[in-house]
Design a binder for these strands. Sequence first.
DNA 1: ATGTCGGCGCCCCGCCGACAA
DNA 2: TTGTCGGCGGGGCGCCGACAT
Lengths: 466, 466
Amino acid sequence: MKSPAAGAVGTAATATATNGEGVEKKSINPELWQACAGPLVNLPAAGTHVVYFPQGHSEQVAASMKKDVDAQIPNYPNLPSKLLCLLHNVTLHADPETDEVYAQMTLQPVSSFDKDALLRSDLALKSNKPQTEFFCKTLTASDTSTHGGFSVPRRAAEKIFPPLDFSMQPPAQELVARDLHDNVWTFRHIYRGQPKRHLLTTGWSLFISGKRLFAGDSVLFIRDEKQQLLLGIRRANRQPTNLSSSVLSSDSMHIGILAAAAHAAANNSPFTVFYNPRASPSEFVIPLAKYYKAVYSNQISLGMRFRMMFETEESGTRRYMGTITGISDLDPVRWKNSQWRNLQVGWDESTADLKRPRQPGMPDDDSSDLDSLLKRTMPWLGDDICMKDPQAPPGLSLVQWMNMQQNPSLAHSMQPNYMQSLSGSVLQNLPGADLSLSVRHVITSNASAKQRAVKCPKAASASTTA
Amino acid sequence: MKSPAAGAVGTAATATATNGEGVEKKSINPELWQACAGPLVNLPAAGTHVVYFPQGHSEQVAASMKKDVDAQIPNYPNLPSKLLCLLHNVTLHADPETDEVYAQMTLQPVSSFDKDALLRSDLALKSNKPQTEFFCKTLTASDTSTHGGFSVPRRAAEKIFPPLDFSMQPPAQELVARDLHDNVWTFRHIYRGQPKRHLLTTGWSLFISGKRLFAGDSVLFIRDEKQQLLLGIRRANRQPTNLSSSVLSSDSMHIGILAAAAHAAANNSPFTVFYNPRASPSEFVIPLAKYYKAVYSNQISLGMRFRMMFETEESGTRRYMGTITGISDLDPVRWKNSQWRNLQVGWDESTADLKRPRQPGMPDDDSSDLDSLLKRTMPWLGDDICMKDPQAPPGLSLVQWMNMQQNPSLAHSMQPNYMQSLSGSVLQNLPGADLSLSVRHVITSNASAKQRAVKCPKAASASTTA
DNA sequence: ATGTCGGCGCCCCGCCGACAA
DNA sequence: TTGTCGGCGGGGCGCCGACAT
């Protein structure tokens, strides 16, 4: 890999997929994978250090099986709530049946890390991915019915599709697009009707039936660097694939996760995890630098102001604000003093009025309806686009923390009260700290129809604010 | 349960399915489940004692994921190669997407058992299930094309379907059949053409497309005790559902199985397994009495004659004979002295000429073509229909063995040489001993086209013979 | 006994602009 | 700007017996 510290998906992950027998298959386009995963997903870069949360991994399995953990899981007292790991490898995958995207990561627990490792992780974070041009549309009843084709949003057609020859009557062309598996789909793109509009006609119904799409699912188009048209899907139907339960019991799965992590931690041997961004409630493999910033650059306390990113229905992002209303262990028996979902946050009602920042590929939508904004309630880790409020509580800089790590006695004494006395003079150099992994409950400050919307998110991209 | 010792599926398993949230769903018809599972599948009865083989369980996962076990699996030195368990519960399931049948079993390791338990297990074995009337047909290209309907085998239509009114011209009726999920399918059943034949026309294409069936898949019809028509499917496409790999790594799955069993064995606490009869190479939960008969009623030795049951293409059964050519550990490092696949068997060429016993619901097929006979190479545990050969090596009777169990010093000294000296006078009371779990490699005694067919089966219902 | 095919009737898929939101 | 609908033309679904194996 030429640029090991790059954080963008395109360079962070080797975009190859191997099946169970080790046969190399078609590679997966990283930009398309990213588009299908959603705007807030950001995989850590291979070769960097990460923090792995067994609780979060277990949560993903529970979400995939729609089943909570049972009581018969043995304790693994030697398995800490978080593991410092070296991320050896990241490969992108897509389910051949459903096109669901997921990533495979090979992690190796390490007992310590050096300054270079931390800096590499921080550098990978800062390199923002080049947002490729894409558009995403939720399919309507007309789009998916057998009665007609696909109505293309005007801006999308003009921005993504090759330009039409308007001297033709009507203007039309043949579009060729490839999906995640490199399958080719061809559509007739025509500009007709009264008033004029862009339509995909011939070939569209084959796509709809072939991918088994229904109204409410989403389809997206992007152009890669070679100006090739790619397309992907995102299913609205969030019913968990209960399929896996025919192979392994839920208990065995959870035990398998914990035992595999415990075994790897005891032997410092590599282990493999799968991260499914659209099934998992939260990322459970966090870049070391991001983890540091979340935990050590701020003094987490009750009443602290909070900012978090959500994904909107149309694949946009939206800030949301709230206040920390509680700090406690999610599972005090099994995972004591874990930072996984130890914060409760009450969300502001007023933040619904915040304007969503315009992003490329995002249709213009100025709706302030909270219900629609949060229909896609799966939370995501956000880009580091949050600005630090000058009145934020003081924290430690990256350099300060590294120095403390090299001075064990000092690090050991690093308590909230001590941290509070440190100077926050270098804070402005730090992007917002992502605390999403710590967020548990979402509480509305006002009883209204909004309660329906905010019940679902359990965690999301979050930043402390004043 | 009225008859706790019954071994038939209908009474052995509670035919209810619960989803992940504990909501009771429609019950699954046990006869239909049995028909879909195949003629050789025989689930142990709830309430009886069984022997659980972690190796076999792991094999099922490997087969489901089409991936062998990797090296990174930790050793579980305290987990024996077989666990004596009390089978608390058996529930029948069917995958809602694929109709694949599987069973969920709750096992609790026990350190000992009494005479009643052994007798109950033996009693459950002896109760033969009432073979319901059914027929099974492999779909042809014409059956699955959009050009026409389904050609019903004559005997099948006469035996299973309600009789037609032949005063009509042409004779026709509407058939209503329910699948495993209690979904209703209606077909027009007509007797027409030159020469006359039974056909399913209107409604058939909806079924084919709805179940996503292709030529080579099989469809089966049965009548339940209320004369209701039921239908099921068996897919020929044995491609493993790689879906589960998007949730959990193969390593974690294997670790999960072993760790769950080890934890349950250490605490004598219950654990849950899923048995998928059409994906698993062999059953890995064996009735205690069947295990006993396999291991203790015969002196296993090199050169011993061997008999095993296979499932034929048309859902029939077929005996196959061979000779034990080797006895050794499948995995000497991890599972020393395990009885799982420790026998190699060379199959007789001449056994291809054996007549298959006529069974209800099985179309007449006197083909002696070995290739076609063994196309369905997945092996199954068979019914106890094998007769004991008078010249068989001597073994222990059930009563003798029980007495030895109550006399530890005697049981401890129970060695092959010792057993050989015992009288075999009560042997005729014993059905053939099923050794299928121990069979590993299949070696043809003659190089020919038959080699292709016999490479695949790794184990099947087997009995020692002279 | 039953798998495949030519014939062909008619259903419904799918392309069109009209309209409205 | 774009979702839904009536209109309608034609491709293919699906029912039929012929024929072969």
